[in-house]
Amino acid sequence: MRIRALVIRIVRQFLHDKRSMALLIVAPLLVLSLMYLVFNGDTYEPKIGTVQLPEAVSQTLGENGADVTAYDSEAEAEEALAEREVDAIIRLDGAAPAVKLEGSDPARNRAVMAAVQKAMQAQQGPGGSPAGAAQAPVIEYLHGSEDMSSFDNFGPVLIGLFAFFFVFLIAGVSFLKERTSGTLERLLATPLRRWEIVAGYMIGFGIFTSIQAALIAGYTIGVLGSLMAGSFGCVLLIMLLLSLTALSFGTFLSAFANTEFQMIQFIPLVIVPQVFFSGLFDLESISPWLRWLSYITPLKYGADALRGVMIRGEGWSAIAPDIGVLLALTLVFMAANVLALRKHRKI
């Protein structure tokens, strides 16, 4: 009865507050769309300048994904390189080709090298050693495919991240406002119990975070066409649990902030590190003595499970441990919040 009153109030507040509604629903979709455009674009075409290179070589370079510009003199090419008009210049040093890279962007360096290597293989191919031409390896994919884009790889982590971040922020600030506006104290002068406050918040905000989770997942998979190997139901379940964790975490942390600004200050402390451990970056390259941190970040469990379902098509049994951890974290944060409210009223 009292929890229901609290839930109805939160829903009404939300419906009156168009801005928060937009932040919760529209913002993640917008950011995801931008990410999609950035990471799903065509592969970069390296711009290569050539200096007196045989026409055949230039042509093979062009066929292998390079944008080739021919220069008459080395000085001219060097100038173009310095002006960043080209990413690399190739000239013949005796019989062997010499490549000089602009070098400030590793991604472009790799693109140039890939194009050069492909071109050299193609040059050697027909007339080269028989062993090289004989057997091209057969390539198969256990998961994903040749067409898998970066977005397919990042997508599951990103939807988890956005669901987590926006819910954390809105729930945390709303709960904080309850304290700064004096309404929390007013609530404590009613028969409302501390656990009922926490439960009411979880349910009231839970309604909106569920809608958000469904929208984000549906949009990413249905509209943006992210790779989806497993079941949508599993994705929804993970998203919901991840949102609830963010909800309980945000409301709990707000107990340690006195103003909205202090709540924002938690972002670099508790959100940004989670991004590093979420799987956007390869965990293998993180120092082993720091790696244990990943086990206490809720986002990692959500992102792992989402990737498992969306990329590798894993089912319920594979994600159950992650779901379990998220559920446990939610309960721990909720209990901690009930305890934190003791600060305001002992009973």
Binding site: R9, A189, P191
Partner: peptide
């Protein structure tokens, strides 16, 4: 708490809600 009525020094009201919604909320509590 049910036998006591308390009015705090600061107006502890939900500004986004109407007066009616505020009353309904506290009434239900």
């Amino acid at each position: 708490m049910v036998r006591i009525g308390y009015m705090a020094q600061s107006d502890a009201l939900y500004a986004e809600l109407t007066a009616k919604e505020n009353l309904e909320f506290f009434g239900a509590l």
